[in-house]
Nucleic acid binder design. Sequence first.
DNA 1: CGTCTATTTGAATGTACTCAAAAGCGGTGG
DNA 2: CCACCGCTTTTGAGTACATTCAAATAGACG
Lengths: 207, 207
Amino acid sequence: MLTYTKFIQTNPFPILVSMTHYQIFRNIQKHISLTEAEKQHIISQCDVLDIQKKQRILEQGKLCKKLYFVESGSLRAFNLSAEGKESTIMFAVKDWWITDMNSFVNQKPALLSIEALEPCQIISLDFHVLEQHYQFIPKLERFFRIIFQNAYIREQLRALQSISLTTEERYRQFVENYPAIVEKVTQKQIASYLGVTPEFLSSVKKK
Amino acid sequence: MLTYTKFIQTNPFPILVSMTHYQIFRNIQKHISLTEAEKQHIISQCDVLDIQKKQRILEQGKLCKKLYFVESGSLRAFNLSAEGKESTIMFAVKDWWITDMNSFVNQKPALLSIEALEPCQIISLDFHVLEQHYQFIPKLERFFRIIFQNAYIREQLRALQSISLTTEERYRQFVENYPAIVEKVTQKQIASYLGVTPEFLSSVKKK
DNA sequence: CGTCTATTTGAATGTACTCAAAAGCGGTGG
DNA sequence: CCACCGCTTTTGAGTACATTCAAATAGACG
């Protein structure tokens, strides 16, 4: 059986460089603490990617094998219906995690495409690597328990707002709750997140 | 510091009875395995409650201190707006977990009330007890990581459907995905889950 | 500067809500 | 066992919200 100690043994290089310049570790260490060795272990199994505006890191219909963390930049996850209508499911800015979670976890075809809204630096974690991390560094179960717990709370609040508030109220809430996102995205994209047409959102704003 | 071993030492009674008759352990053991001692430990810190139809286990505006598991029966979590409109956020049938997660986790006033749709047997876990369980039985971090992961996936799918599908399509999806719930609830409650009026849902069904 | 896309505006149409009233249904007490 | 009560469901008319389509305007980008 693989153990964490074994990893250390198989890594012949002394650990010299602090990993704290990676936003991902500041993110993880909001909830758990990691040793330098653990950070080294994790980062050694990740890909750090620089992507351009409009570049896609996931294409609807394909299998999603990666979980992404946004070091810098911003992205958008959306579904394209048979009738050609885009529905934005989430935005991700610096310090957020993003993927098609259903596809990633259950290895089913993705309902979502994910594309960069601007040049981004992202860190990608492979599904199988993450499963191994859960074994080597069980604290990560706790970390992702907290991450998913918060994600669930956010989505449930979104569901409540989407069935109980008017479009105007939901737009206000969005602007209030996610000012960092509002700066980066077009009104058309916000409309597709709220589930209304861009024309209608425009007329709502006029008031 | 408290340890799991210490718990065993402080429990002077031999463990004689299997806990497998509790649905909650069958639920937990879908994802992790528990020893009889661990089950005994968990159940000793829970309350097993029998509640009547229409009885509320959480009142909107109050703090939610408990996480509930449904052994039998069914419940509904809903928000009542200032204008008197009810929005059903979730239903819970046998083998489901339910609470106002935001209130439970962040100790904020509940947005939701939770009430029984029929006589229920439920198991209640206190917030602080659960936090201790995470220490004693770290496997539970994994269990709830998976639970929240699935809850997040479900809610995200719901968000997508709510912004991309027509009311008719969403009704069909609901009936298809949750046949066990459809049996237990009124059409008015389904309407409040879909975010439409009962009158409109009635007219949609007629077609 | 020109092209492409986003945003605004308006008219016509369709979707969903409000309000009111009737019909259906389940539980309870006489 | 039946009659009544309260709640749910249905139905319909009138209104408000949101979409579609088309065209004009404004912005972003090479």
